[in-house]
Simulated assay, not measured.
Amino acid sequence: MVRALLAGAKTQTRRALRSPEDAARNRFGRPGDLLWVRETFFAYGRWETRFNLRKQHAEWFFTDMTQAAGHAWRYAADEGPGADAHARREARVAPAWHKRPALFMPRAASRILLEIVEVRVERLQEISVADALAEGLPPGAERDPVLAYRGIWEGINGAGSWDENPLVWVLAFVKRPLASMSIPNI
């Protein structure tokens, strides 16, 4: 989906409501709000351990040295160099390029900024052909976009999740140039 965002092919996303009361508490934002996108990335740094007093044991943590070393983050969605072959979670080794999950992406590493243009709630199966295409479907899905989107939905949310026909948040957005401001993430 990152490639579809970068190409401008993905202009909508759907997220299941956690409960019927969730419809009154939109946690994704309103039209005009900006969202930064996290994605799997590569950071230059090293693993170290620290003792956690509360848990009473040592824990691993990653020290991101990318900017301090004069490098730029790399992205898993791009072709090109990724993690170093010798990169491993071992204390006191030289810094290297490590693959990092999207969850740990710092705001400064994000390269995709989205502006929300519409927010609505609907049943999942109410998705139109145009909306399914706006979800950034892979090439070849044009024959039956809704069926293709169903496959993506169930791949993320589990078998049978389409048939449950949950209420979903629908966020429509446009890609914006990056800006240095404090904004939430999705």
Rank of each mutant, 00 (worst) to 15 (best):
M1C: 02
M1Y: 03
R3L: 04
L5Y: 02
T11N: 13
T11M: 13
T13Y: 01
T13K: 01
R15K: 03
E21L: 12
A23D: 11
A24C: 07
R25A: 12
N26S: 06
R27E: 06
F28W: 06
F28N: 10
P31T: 07
P31R: 01
G32E: 05
G32S: 09
L34W: 13
L35G: 08
L35Q: 14
W36E: 13
W36N: 14
V37H: 01
V37N: 02
V37C: 02
E39I: 04
E39M: 02
A43F: 01
Y44L: 03
E48H: 06
F51N: 10
Q56W: 01
W60F: 12
W60C: 10
M65A: 08
A69Q: 05
A69I: 00
A72Q: 12
W73Q: 05
W73I: 04
Y75I: 00
Y75L: 03
A77K: 02
P81Q: 02
G82A: 07
G82C: 08
H86N: 15
A87G: 08
R89L: 09
E90L: 13
R92G: 15
R92I: 12
V93Y: 09
P95L: 03
A96D: 08
H98V: 03
H98M: 03
H98I: 01
K99W: 07
R100T: 11
A102D: 10
A102S: 15
F104M: 14
F104T: 15
M105D: 08
P106F: 03
A108F: 05
A108Q: 12
A109M: 04
A109L: 02
R111G: 05
I112H: 10
L114V: 13
E115A: 01
V117K: 13
V117P: 14
V117H: 12
R123Q: 05
L124R: 10
Q125N: 07
Q125R: 04
E126I: 12
I127Q: 11
I127N: 08
S128R: 10
V129D: 14
L133P: 12
A134E: 14
G136V: 00
P138M: 03
P138H: 03
P139D: 02
A141K: 09
E142Y: 01
E142W: 02
E142K: 05
R143H: 03
R143T: 14
V146E: 05
Y149E: 12
I152G: 11
G155K: 02
G155R: 00
I156N: 15
N157M: 09
S161Y: 03
S161R: 04
W162N: 12
E164Q: 14
N165L: 02
N165E: 08
V168A: 04
V168K: 03
W169R: 14
W169A: 11
W169E: 11
V170L: 06
L171F: 13
F173G: 05
F173A: 13
V174L: 07
V174R: 15
V174F: 14
K175G: 04
M181V: 10
I183R: 09
P184A: 01
P184L: 01
N185A: 00
